[in-house]
């Protein structure tokens, strides 16, 4: 029984990291239809930003979260403005363009700070462990879980309870009609992309104490996050949450029964089959076209 609960908790922990990384991707893909292959690099930039703030400015991880969000968001804004907005009518080409941007970011970081692994310290206040359902869990993982849920709620509120969110939803439904009502679609898109990038940066900063930081750390994340988004459904934030935790539990569980490689292969296969039969994702409510 203990083992079972431990598995569940491990799955929740994997799921919360997946959610952190996938949230930004989900916003960008769901609202702009852009498959952002540079997303992993935004995660990487966030992790490096955490390292830089800590090493050169002596800031703790928690104190640097807000500046990291804005730093990476600015990167996102610039990329949207000067690269992606030129590809309005060519969705397949945005895959290629963002992949090229990702290579550039990765390589630029490698040239500037080297490709050796970097480490970010756990915040001292969260470095102990605590008791959850009778088993001991690292406090930081609990913290990640809480933060990922909080970010989801914040994003949901932003989308559904603010003017910018309303404008974005209007553009998603019909760009030209929205534009004729005076909504500046270009500006909203740029802001959306920047927000998504900022979220990815936060995710990178938050996972940096758990994993080592390296220029190519983002590659693994982008694939996983993408699978979360596809499984959850393109325009459904709640679906993203559900699928993040489902995938977390699933890969945790299969990895426990078989091994990591088999877990990965099975999850990928399941997603391939899912795309074929339900390309709109598992949790998409029917929206009016």
């Amino acid at each position: 029984m203990d083992q079972f609960i431990e598995q569940i908790v491990t799955g929740l922990s994997i799921g919360s990291i997946l959610l952190l990384v996938a949230l930004g991707l989900s916003i960008i893909y769901g609202s702009m239809g852009i498959i952002n292959l540079a997303h992993g690099e935004f995660v990487m930039l966030g992790a490096y930003a955490a390292w830089v703030f800590h090493t050169y400015l002596g800031l703790g991880l928690l104190a640097s979260l807000v500046p990291i969000f804005f730093v990476v968001a600015v990167f996102g804004w610039v990329i949207e403005r000067y690269v992606l907005s030129l590809l309005n009518n060519r969705p397949l080409d945005t895959i290629l363009a963002t992949w090229g941007v990702g290579i550039m970011l990765q390589q630029a970081v490698r040239l500037m700070v080297g490709s050796e692994l970097r480490y970010v310290q756990l915040p001292p206040a969260l470095s102990d462990s605590m008791d959850v359902f009778g088993i001991s869990v690292s406090s930081y993982r609990v913290f990640l879980f809480v933060v990922s849920i909080a970010l989801f709620v914040a994003t949901w509120l932003l989308m559904n309870r603010t003017t910018v969110g309303m404008k974005l939803r209007a553009i998603i439904q019909d760009r030209s009609v929205a534009a004729s009502f005076g909504i500046n679609a270009k500006r909203v898109y740029a802001l959306t992309f920047a927000y998504g990038a900022g979220l990815a940066g936060l995710a990178g900063a938050l996972v940096s104490p758990l994993k080592s930081v390296s220029p190519d750390m983002g590659t693994g994340y982008v694939v996983d996050a993408f699978m979360v988004v596809v499984l959850g459904g393109v325009q459904s934030l709640a679906g993203t949450v559900a699928s993040a935790f489902i995938l977390g539990e699933l890969s945790g569980g299969i990895a426990f029964l078989q091994n990591d490689t088999v877990a990965k292969a099975i999850v990928l296969l399941a997603i391939v089959v899912l795309i074929r039969f339900r390309p709109e994702g598992l949790f998409t409510a029917r929206v009016r076209a």
Binding site: V272, F277, P279
Partner: peptide
């Protein structure tokens, strides 16, 4: 046959390749 197009073709082909790659390594 399922009329999968565009981006989804790219995802499926990429994922399938990764699966075969994983199996070969495993």
């Amino acid at each position: 046959r399922g009329r999968v197009t565009g981006v989804y073709v790219s995802i499926i082909t990429l994922a399938t390749m990764v699966v075969i790659n994983l199996v070969i390594i495993d």
